[in-house]
């Protein structure tokens, strides 16, 4: 699992990769009420908006950690957006195919991300 400074995670499994938001991100958002899911077949560049997450008083956009094509959005979230609050690392937002796997190297490891969070808190 790799992490971005915008608090997304990405996990490679076989030919696909899964994208979600971190525990820190879901805590910041509070109770999530709606996820505007990504459209399938969408081709996106690293940093493009993948989808949007809404809580009662905020809305946040989720950015692509790497360039790729959306294969599937997690339809389960349509009726149960709270799953992200309950299990942020077990709940993906989109399943994608990565264009260029070397882009993963730009992202943070878990330790690096935790350090990043600590430095942000200061």
């Amino acid at each position: 699992m790799r992490f971005t400074r915008d608090h997304e995670w990405i996990k490679k499994e076989g030919k696909y990769a899964y994208i979600g938001i971190t525990d820190y991100a879901q805590q910041q958002l509070g109770d999530i009420v709606y996820v505007e899911l990504a459209e399938e077949d969408l081709v996106l560049q690293q940093g493009d908006v993948l989808c949007a997450i809404e809580s009662v008083k905020t809305a946040a956009e989720v950015y692509m950690p790497v360039s790729g094509t959306v294969i599937e959005a997690n339809a389960e979230l349509e009726d149960a957006p709270e799953k992200i609050n309950e299990d942020p690392y077990g709940t993906y937002l989109a399943k994608i195919i990565i264009d260029d796997e070397t882009e993963l190297n730009d992202l943070m490891t878990e330790d690096e991300y935790n350090e990043f969070l600590e430095s942000e808190a200061e």
């Binding site: 709606y34 008083k57 809305a59």
Partner: peptide, 12 residues
């Protein structure tokens, strides 16, 4: 459904 609105989404 206030997350649609200007005081939250601003220019979006």
């Amino acid at each position: 459904l206030q997350a649609r609105e200007q005081h939250i989404r601003r220019e979006k």
